[in-house]
Simulated assay, not measured.
Amino acid sequence: MLRSRRLRQTENLRRLRKETHLHIDDFIYPLFIVPGEGIKKEIPSLKDQYHLSVDMLEAEINEITSLGLKYVMLFGLPESKDELGTSGFIENGTIQRAVRKIKEVNPDIVVVTDVCMCEYTSHGHCGILDDCGCVDNDCTLTYLSKIALSHAQTGADIICPSDMMDGRVEAIRKTLDENGFVNTPILSHSSKFASSYYGPFREACDSAPSHGNRKGYQLDFHNGREAIMEGEFDMMEGADILMVKPALAYLDVVKAYRENFNLPIAVYNVSGEYQMLVSAVDSGIVCEDIIYESLIAMKRAGADIIVSYFAKYAAKKIQSGEWI
């Protein structure tokens, strides 16, 4: 009897009972910035996502603003790479120029900058290599701090380390504070798993490692309890927001973060998740509603913030009233 009454409920009654909702302010939209001029080129592995040169950002930011989006996350490709990733912290680097441009176009856009070394190093790893070809965790902290400081100095609002080196939140927090950026928050990739879902992103950022893999410093996807430990470390070191990455295959970790940490929780709906859904919809295997269902699952699990290539699409749906 109860079940039949539920089936007869109108759409408006169902909306009244909804426990989980998406809002435009939930989303951060990733942007890929490249050297050069006049470049807006679709990324082959990521449908409807583009490599943009700095001079093309004005139109992009104006579109983002018109959709009601307020948050972007920047990833940059350098003009040159070396073993120390020095293009990551030079004054006129790709990201540094992009931050200045965005703030010129719209000072109210909140700019989140990715802090890692994989896109800047000639070897494609997320840190400095020692003589044996392994990542030197402690040496890397100095360079990550340089990148973070350079971003803050050019106007970045939130620093987002994604490298997974031990102690990097503390090192970056100390560097920012010592240089007067005490109010610049850190959004930490607290649980970044060694995942196969990153494939399209690595093509987009030209950041695949030239040898070996990143399993030595990214989290083993078998380990949920270790993810909680990583979140505890980052919180103690001064992180303001904790992120779980990827999202869909790790909703158990998102839920555990929500239950264990009294901080905002973010998820990164990564490139592989995005492209799989897009391809499935395009091929007719599933209907478009699967995108909404997947994003709702992230919120329902406990995410406050969703970094997603679907952000523009979601904003249009929310503005139109289709997603309420």
Score class of each variant (00 low, 15 high):
5 R>Q: 13
11 E>A: 15
21 H>E: 13
21 H>G: 01
25 D>V: 08
26 D>T: 09
33 I>K: 02
36 G>V: 13
37 E>V: 15
44 P>K: 14
48 D>F: 14
49 Q>A: 13
51 H>S: 11
51 H>N: 12
55 D>G: 10
60 E>T: 15
62 N>F: 08
65 T>G: 00
69 L>M: 14
69 L>I: 15
74 L>A: 06
75 F>H: 05
77 L>C: 07
81 K>N: 03
84 L>W: 12
85 G>C: 05
85 G>S: 06
88 G>H: 01
90 I>H: 01
100 R>T: 09
103 K>Y: 08
104 E>I: 03
104 E>V: 02
110 V>M: 14
112 V>I: 15
112 V>C: 06
112 V>F: 13
113 T>Y: 02
114 D>V: 04
115 V>I: 13
116 C>F: 01
117 M>C: 04
118 C>D: 14
122 S>E: 06
124 G>V: 04
132 C>Y: 13
132 C>V: 05
135 V>T: 11
136 D>W: 04
136 D>G: 12
144 L>Y: 00
145 S>N: 09
149 L>I: 04
151 H>G: 00
154 T>N: 14
168 R>V: 02
169 V>L: 05
172 I>F: 06
173 R>V: 01
181 F>P: 02
183 N>C: 11
184 T>D: 09
184 T>C: 13
185 P>A: 12
187 L>K: 04
189 H>C: 05
192 K>Q: 12
197 Y>H: 09
201 F>W: 06
205 C>E: 02
205 C>M: 12
207 S>D: 03
207 S>F: 04
212 G>T: 06
219 L>S: 05
219 L>G: 05
220 D>T: 12
227 A>I: 04
230 E>S: 11
234 D>Y: 03
239 A>G: 03
240 D>Y: 07
241 I>N: 01
242 L>T: 02
243 M>W: 04
251 L>H: 08
253 V>H: 01
259 E>K: 15
262 N>L: 11
264 P>G: 11
270 V>C: 14
277 L>Y: 08
279 S>G: 08
283 S>T: 11
288 E>C: 09
288 E>S: 10
294 S>I: 01
295 L>F: 07
297 A>E: 13
298 M>G: 08
299 K>C: 10
302 G>T: 01
305 I>N: 05
309 Y>F: 14
312 K>T: 09
316 K>A: 08
317 K>L: 07
